[in-house]
Simulated scan of single mutants.
Amino acid sequence: MMRELTYYVAVSIDGFIAGPGGEFDQFLFEGDHAADIARRYQGTAPTQLAERAGFPVDGGPFDTVLMGWNTYAVGLPDLPDPYQHLRQIVFTRGREAPAGSDGVEFTDRDPVEVVREVKAAEGRGIWLCGGGALAAVLRDEIDRLALKRNPVLFGAGIPLFEGRDYAPAAFRPTGITPYESGVVLAEYVRA
């Protein structure tokens, strides 16, 4: 059985994964949703932050995380090797690997080609962490969506999928979980 690629990400109700300046501080990180989602998607917090908070990092649904450079750079300079418990692949063109990033694979290869190779190898799920441009490139490779819809409007910013020049794709819901905090975890599988 081939491994699945899941685009697991926080998103505003108007479809943005970050605001116009790349900000995401309006997303809710605390509330009744936090522990449940952290349990379901164990291992998706940066290793050092998870350890400080007492969250386990092993045994989650993913063993590989994919990021574009801008998503990866959010943690710099403090977290140059953010998900030490996962295989980390960062797609970038012409960027230098920062000091302390020994556990991160940087590549300028075609993301679709890389994802197909990773899917064909043994292992658990693959997590697409972001961003919107990489998600658009990998759109046809995404098997599942796990969207943490936050009760905020950004109005502009980085969309869930950058660009709109692609054919429709159908997904069917596998679970919709609303929380008192206003966050809704919406999970889908490719139809």
Rank of each mutant, 00 (worst) to 15 (best):
L28T: 01
L28I: 03
G31T: 05
G31C: 09
D32P: 08
A34L: 09
A34F: 00
A35D: 14
A35L: 10
D36V: 15
D36M: 13
D36T: 15
I37V: 15
R40M: 03
R40I: 06
Y41L: 13
Q42S: 14
Q42E: 14
Q42F: 05
G43F: 03
G43T: 15
G43S: 08
G43W: 07
T44Y: 01
T44C: 05
A45N: 06
P46D: 08
P46Q: 15
P46A: 15
P46S: 15
T47H: 01
Q48D: 13
L49F: 03
L49M: 12
L49E: 09
A50S: 11
E51V: 11
E51L: 15
E51Y: 05
E51A: 09
A53I: 09
G54C: 09
G54V: 09
F55S: 04
F55P: 03
F55Q: 10
P56Y: 05
P56I: 06
V57N: 14
G59P: 12
G59R: 09
P61K: 02
P61M: 10
F62S: 08
F62Y: 14
T64D: 13
V65W: 01
L66I: 04
M67G: 12
M67K: 07
M67L: 08
M67H: 08
N70S: 11
N70M: 10
N70A: 12
Y72D: 01
Y72V: 05
Y72Q: 01
A73D: 07
A73I: 01
A73F: 04
A73R: 13
L76E: 04
L76C: 10
P77E: 09
P77K: 05
P77L: 03
D78Y: 13
L79S: 13
L79R: 13
L79T: 11
P80M: 02
D81Q: 03
D81W: 01
Y83S: 04
Y83K: 08
Q84F: 05
H85I: 10
H85V: 04
H85Q: 05
L86G: 00
L86Y: 02
L86I: 02
L86R: 01
L86M: 02
R87H: 00
I89W: 00
I89H: 00
F91C: 15
F91N: 02
F91K: 04
T92S: 14
G94F: 06
G94V: 06
G94E: 14
E96I: 07
E96S: 15
E96P: 14
A97V: 04
A97Y: 03
A99D: 11
A99Y: 03
S101V: 03
S101N: 06
D102W: 01
D102A: 14
D102Y: 03
G103Y: 11
